[in-house]
Design a protein around this nucleic acid. Sequence first.
DNA 1: AAAGTCATCAACCGCGGGGAC
DNA 2: TGTCCCCGCGGTTGATGACTT
Length: 261
Amino acid sequence: MVKATLVDKNGLRKGAWSREEDDKLRVYVQKYGHWNWRQLPRFAGLSRCGKSCRLRWINYLRPDVKRGNFSDEEDNLIIQMHEELGNKWSIIAGKLPGRTDNEIKNHWHTNLSKRVKQSESVSSELVNKEQSSETSESADSQAEKSETDSVSVNTPSEPDGHPKIVENIPSPQEISCSELSSMNNDYVSAMNGAADSFSPMEIFQDSGFWNQPFLADNNDSQDDYHSLLFTEEVYMPSYPFNFDDDGVNWIQQMMQELQDI
DNA sequence: AAAGTCATCAACCGCGGGGAC
DNA sequence: TGTCCCCGCGGTTGATGACTT
């Protein structure tokens, strides 16, 4: 179910994430936030493109990501919102705390869409039966009935077949995952400063924003801050990190200590 | 037990929006 | 106003476990 890890021509790893990579990314983002996804893998010591890091964090590593089966309430909400909004997975995810757009999208395609189709086919059969039994009714009552149906039966009011949205749905920006990441502004500034100390030509030599390779053997001596960062992050002695509260507590403790500096 | 098929879901890809210059 | 860069979104892919024949 997990894509095999491979290395592309730029030296970037693709496919399944290893535990070590997860730990590096998690620790880095918890500590510094995602100040720049493109450059983040370089600082975090990951041979991944920024896009891959962002996806991994949002869909898997974020501390508030809820794993496990969807509840009936969640299913119903997804179905209802999909009926209103269509494939606006990020907006739907915003209404389901702990669920990611990718997870909801997968859940829809594997489970809910089939369920909806089934229920639709059943309801359409019922409607056909009702209509055939009503053929003896007067024309006036027929018109009245059709008006009633147009309200109660999901009649599209938009050209694309989706009804108009009545509810005040937050924009994707309002529910952006970036808000979920607790960033310390001091560190963001520090990191921006560190990033600025690189020559743009050095950093952006290769084309393609998301596919910037991380050069593990680059010359860090030209940037003290960068060297310090790598000393802390990449070559950190086996930190007591785990996927439980102890790991989170440890990270929180680390952040507190850094804030006190 | 082996082979074939289906289901699941993590990860990739391409596109477009928005901000900065 | 146009261009570039960063980011996020939605569609799609593909590896693998589960199930069936």
